[in-house]
């Protein structure tokens, strides 16, 4: 059995992915600390400034996260054929069929993986939902961070109501990202085990393996 390599993920998409990995990890840890500081300084005059540091890291990671989200939106419109919106949404017959075949494959009801180089449609829909959640997370974050700005007061006020409600939503959505990370990592490993396309290495190299037709 011989394979050929197909270039699937552009360099921007791979950078986006790893920016998200780094920023979400940093944001979750620092965010949990900011919500409920589990440790603090009780020695006077030490100037360790843990909360200040956590907040600064949180804001830095938030900039990386926001930038990554913008890159993904750009790629949805102008990326390669595997990265664009049309390949992710269950709107064409090909995509709808792939959605159902993927569901059956994941439920062990269909032993054969449909050959598809880009995202399967189930993953594509999940990523779009994640992007939407990310937009709300960015909006609530900037509303909390720049509460004095008239722009964010207008936008944040219209979406979330008060600061406290935005804080609540911001914290609630963090749990979505943890849930996403858990399922995402599991399914990636599961796919790596089940199919020889090299899904894990593809996010480093951008290449996937495809069985040669005889």
């Amino acid at each position: 059995m011989s394979y050929e390599t197909i270039r699937v993920w552009g360099v921007l998409l791979r950078l986006y992915h790893w920016a998200l990995v780094i920023s979400i990890s940093a944001l979750a840890v620092t965010g949990l600390y900011i919500n409920s500081p589990w440790t603090g300084t009780t020695l006077e005059g030490v100037a360790a400034m843990p909360m200040l540091a956590m907040r600064n890291w949180h804001f830095l990671a938030a900039c990386l996260f926001s930038g990554a989200v913008l890159v993904r939106i750009y790629l949805l419109l102008f990326g390669n054929r595997y990265e664009r919106l049309g390949d992710l949404l269950p709107v064409t017959g090909r995509n709808l069929r792939n959605l159902f075949s993927t569901l059956l494959y994941y439920l062990y009801l269909n032993p054969n993986k449909e050959e598809r180089m880009g995202h399967n449609v189930l993953a594509g829909m999940t990523y779009l939902l994640t992007l939407l959640v990310a937009l709300f997370q960015v909006a609530s974050g900037f509303f909390l961070r720049y509460a004095e700005s008239a722009f964010w007061q207008g936008l944040g006020g219209a979406i979330f109501g008060s600061q406290q409600q935005a804080r609540f939503v911001h914290h609630l959505l963090m749990w979505y990202f943890l849930l996403f990370a858990l399922i995402h990592i599991y399914l990636v490993v599961w796919n790596e085990v089940k199919a020889p396309e090299g899904i894990i290495s593809s996010i480093f190299s951008g290449r996937k393996f495809k069985e040669r037709q005889h």
Binding site: P37, T39, G40, T41, T42, E44, V46, A47, P50, M51
Partner: peptide, 8 residues
Amino acid sequence: AHFDEGRY
């Protein structure tokens, strides 16, 4: 200052 310094 106590907030930034983590004294709660």
